[in-house]
Design a protein around this nucleic acid. Structure first.
Lengths: 135, 135, 135, 135
DNA sequence: GTGGTCTAGACCACG
DNA sequence: GTGGTCTAGACCACA
């Protein structure tokens, strides 16, 4: 795999900590980071990208608040849950639905013929049915 | 129903200009604002909500950049396109897809059982039969 | 009122951002900061205590995550809820109960004769029945 | 029931030494560890859980500082006091009260309807009949 | 003016 | 070694 796991764009208006958070969320959804999988240490990740440790720490902080990450001083940060685990609390999901609503509306307004089809496609391409991983 | 067209929440962490933009996008998607429909002038909208004209102008700017709004000195600002029109240029849709990807991943990672079903539901509830509409 | 609203102890092992958070929580519980009440700006509070703005920002961040604070760029940070409002999500309350359990056990183990009585006292002294405030 | 006496969660963000300390405090409060009861040696406890002896030592240190533990070279570490014994010195109780104040305030601020009732419930469920207790 | 983001670097707690 | 905390200061987004 030459997949770099993380690609950051310092020129993007999206905050770096948010980009890190997004990439991790996607990796978790895709099963690339199953529950229990370790994430790079704050220091190493920061060093690898030439960014500040505080920035990475903030990304991890958010993920922790979302319940996707658990961290102990000893073993560092590990993924706390996967797609198959019981759904997160309603409070979290409601907020997600609201954002989804706006985003789907945007696609529809822009003339995407079948938004649901795109969703299916994006999602399938993201988290293949968790088969044997390959074939 | 006098259909308020726009509801803004000044206490929300979402920037006002973003809220305006989001509401317009949703109205366009729902067909409430068909192509050619006039939007209130920057001045009147700002006055109506007691907000700064610069805030409204910024929202309109974004909508214009997205290709959803067209402004002429003659007819003011009108909706530039509707859900049925040909899709927006690729660079717009690609960006949308990227954001969609992250958002769907978030739902999946948080244990939503059938993300596509939720999308279908949210979308149907947003822009129902679109065209003939009623019966 | 000579009550300084906030007293911080830089020598305490309790992080400063946590101290700020705790004092705000107490003020909210006591009704001294009712829903909608504005908190000092990050800058002014930091300046007033000779601490860094990032430290205050972190405290506010936590309060925001707890649902006690809401902040907009315009009006700054305001209290988002009060004691009388509907209870926070179970997720939050369960965690609180667990911490309460340990803390009450501690008091009991240390020979406090009637822990419940102390709770009643502490609480009454904290949030008087919301009377006319004094008499 | 083989009563595990101690259950540690290495994935918890709560430091291990703190978990040990908390569990012992709760056991003392519940009467499961009456005054004079011996605790496992630092070495054996550490071995039993596969953790560092320094971690256990730190937990015992804290308990000793709190006055709940007494260590002699002869009899090892034994519980120094129980719920029925005379209250611990004021400086210990004052600190406890301060933390209690913050925690109760937190519950109240989060809309718990009757905080005292919850305390009663939690406590009764923690250290039920203690001695002959009821009739 | 407000808060949000990020950097560079230091110190401490945990195990 | 890990992450958590804090400082001093800069820049940007929002209204």
């Amino acid at each position: 795999m030459s997949a770099p796991l993380l690609e950051l764009d310092p020129t993007s208006p999206v905050p770096i900590y948010q980009q890190i958070r997004d990439r991790v969320v996607e990796a978790v959804a895709a099963g690339a980071l199953p529950a229990g999988a370790p994430l790079p240490s704050v220091r190493s990740l920061a060093a690898g990208f030439g960014i500040n440790t505080a920035t990475v720490a903030k990304a991890y902080d958010r993920l922790r608040a979302e319940g996707l990450l658990r961290t102990t001083s000893k073993s560092g940060s590990v993924v706390a849950r996967g797609p198959g685990d019981p759904p997160s609390p309603p409070h979290v999901l409601d907020d997600w639905r609201a954002r989804l609503r706006t985003l789907l509306a945007e696609g529809h307004a822009h003339g995407v013929p079948d938004v649901v089809a795109v969703c299916r496609e994006v999602l399938g391409d993201l988290a293949p049915p968790t088969r044997e991983e390959a074939s």
